[in-house]
Nucleic acid binder design. Structure first.
Lengths: 190, 190
DNA sequence: TAATTTGCCTAAAGGTGTTAGGCAAATGCA
DNA sequence: TGCATTTGCCTAACACCTTTAGGCAAATTA
């Protein structure tokens, strides 16, 4: 029998494509096997199981996102950088909804440590340099930005903003204005 | 044979409890049947299937959340109301992580229209009255607040903020400061 | 009390996840 | 080049979940 040329990488790649097509939680070992026209059990030489597959997709997504983010932030500063970074998340989620969902997977400690997760926080921190926030405010701001990016993107993707005016493009742009204004005028505790 | 006294409501209630215990995506018709010590097929007289069960849990969660939110906002204004509303989401997500995840389920148009979804936007709008934002800024602000609340809660719950100082309690409180400051000083487009 | 409705059951078929063990293709080595 | 070993995909089997069909008994109603 001819061999299909499977490998962990190819399986995860296929899983990521599948996730974007049918949703992350529909990604199944069986579906990936079908995609390679191979029996399900064959995948178990390359993966330990479903958990492994999903984790692999999550790590792939986190790495792709971090690469794009690094690229977007390079050579920019201030609001320009802020907007560029935010757009990376939003655009990625639109292009790759399944991968984006995967990136939200709660990882086990080991893969989490080896993930690109740290790079994301680092990139946000880099942007904040332009706003000169002292610690611990910088950390608070990193978390706030992460919350807004993720929250907005996931609500928009989930249809939370649909069927209502004004359109989300406008809101997105005004959100960037608001975040920039907030960072330039970061409040003291009250 | 004695009857177990099943009903759609009781099944959904049990499903919600199960969701909080083992996670929303582990909620299964079989598990609910086990909980009532009843055969799986028996549930199909009360539910059309898994989709129905999950939708029911989502609607329950949205309604509970809206009730709590309405209660929290009543008799408060300004930053006080803002914080109270935000805390409702955060506390609910902590007490009922499975239900909170269910509330994020993308609903079909029909149940979505019948859901408490609209009340949530309405409550946020009520809070914004104290900040006197003209339209369409008010809508932008509603969306921004929704993004921050949901984003923060879901990142915190997903462990995105863990293993790092300062603690999230502090960040949460500074996030409230930041949002209040932002709303009192809402920027014009640039 | 008899008729009807309702509630839970058994049975069965199809899909997914996972493990165990086998044969053949690819690879490494004499 | 021929043989031994490794590797890759297979079949078989079991467990669990979903859903549909049809049956018997308990509850309800007349």
């Amino acid at each position: 029998m001819a061999r299909a040329g499977l490998s962990t990488e190819r399986l995860i790649q296929a899983g990521a494509e599948l996730a974007d097509e049918v949703g992350f939680d529909q990604v199944t070992v069986s579906a990936v096997a079908r995609r390679f026209d191979v029996k399900v059990a064959s995948l178990y030489s390359h993966l330990r199981g479903t958990h492994d597959l999903r984790t692999g997709i999550a790590l792939l997504a986190l790495a792709e996102l971090a690469d794009r983010a690094a690229d977007a932030v390079a050579g920019r500063a201030g609001k320009d950088a802020l907007t560029a970074l935010a757009n990376v998340y939003r655009d990625y989620a639109r292009e790759h909804p399944g991968r984006y969902a995967a990136a939200q997977l709660r990882l086990d400690p080991a893969p989490a440590a080896a993930s690109a997760g740290g790079r994301h926080a680092q990139l946000t921190r880099a942007i904040l340099r332009g706003y000169h926030l002292p610690e611990p405010d910088q950390t608070h701001a990193v978390r706030l930005l992460g919350s807004v990016f993720h929250g907005y993107v996931s609500l928009e993707l989930g249809g939370g903003f649909s069927h209502s005016a004004p359109d989300t493009e406008e809101t997105w742009s005004r959100t960037m204005d608001a975040l920039d204004a907030l960072l330039r005028n970061w409040p003291h505790p009250r």
